[in-house]
């Protein structure tokens, strides 16, 4: 989204024009908003029904609106090069775009997002030949974007930029065998809508814009993110190791900070 300033403005205007209070919004309003959003993000391109290609899981009623787990599953029926996650009712609806690389196992992707109001959520798969497949979910959650930031701000500030990588214990990373890993990034992902409880000013936005993961020099995925990712973003992804590691992770935030870390998978669980 950062590479599309005009799109950013268009989405901002949509947010203003969109339903102010989700509880009152009608289905028709939501459908209209999705039509506008589709146009803003995908232009005139057609979106086909994603059934059989892409599935989106999210709780119908979120436990915690600031930590709403979402899972995107690809069936493998189409060769997908990118996935878009949109939270229609959020202030900046395009939550994440994931571009898969040659070392990706793009079947499963999980992350956690903030949800500001009752909303439709969309996952869109883009195939190698440029076709788009969409699926949707309705999620009841409210206040996730403006919820107070970290429950312990000092602890959060002290560990900003720390990165952990967890391998699924049930999924060994043998050469050529798909494996699953989870990336945990310590970052407040402040979206500019949260208040500092001490100064009582709004905390300036500072959020993760880009995450890349490579394995043995091959790209697993690159994610363009935005303010909808939860604090301390967590991303679970699949990969296929074609050679020896390490796995390298690079995270860039909106203040220009770059956090990098390398994980040696041969040494066992990290």
């Amino acid at each position: 989204m950062k590479s599309h300033p005009i799109l950013g403005i268009a989405l901002g205007l949509l947010a203003l024009a969109g339903p102010a209070r989700a509880a009152e919004a009608e289905d028709a309003g939501r459908a209209e908003r999705w039509t506008e959003l589709q146009h803003a993000v995908f232009g005139e391109r057609a979106l086909a029904d994603g059934a059989g290609v892409i599935a989106l899981e999210a709780p119908s009623r979120a436990m915690d609106a600031a930590i709403v787990p979402v899972a995107v599953t690809l069936t493998g029926a189409e060769h997908v090069k990118a996935v878009y996650l949109l939270i229609d009712g959020n202030p900046s609806p395009l939550a994440a775009t994931v571009h898969f690389g040659p070392a990706a196992d793009p079947r499963a992707l999980r992350t956690r997002v903030r949800v500001e109001q009752y909303t439709l959520m969309h996952a869109v798969a883009e195939t190698e030949d440029g076709r788009l497949f969409a699926t949707e979910r309705f999620v009841k959650a409210a206040g996730g974007c403006s919820a107070p930031a970290s429950k312990d701000q000092q602890a959060a500030a002290a560990r900003i930029g720390q990165i952990k990588l967890k391998r699924d214990p049930a999924s060994p990373a043998a050469e050529g065998q798909p494996a699953t890993a989870q990336l945990l990034i310590s970052h407040p992902n402040n979206n500019g809508m949260q208040m500092d409880q001490v100064t009582r000013n709004y905390i300036p936005a500072r959020y993760i814009q880009n995450v890349t993961v490579d394995f043995g020099g091959e790209r697993v995925f690159a994610m363009d993110a935005d303010i909808s990712l939860s604090e301390d973003p967590a991303i679970t992804f699949g990969f296929v190791p074609h050679n020896a590691g390490p796995m390298t992770v690079a995270v860039r935030d909106s203040k220009g900070s770059l956090f990098q870390q390398s994980f040696d998978f041969a040494a066992g669980r990290s």
């Binding site: 436990m63 915690d64 930590i67 301390d232």
Partner: peptide, 14 residues
């Protein structure tokens, strides 16, 4: 309970 667990899960990751 579900909300407690969700928040505590994120806390314990760090």
């Amino acid at each position: 309970n579900g909300r407690n667990v969700t928040a505590a899960f994120a806390e314990l990751e760090w």
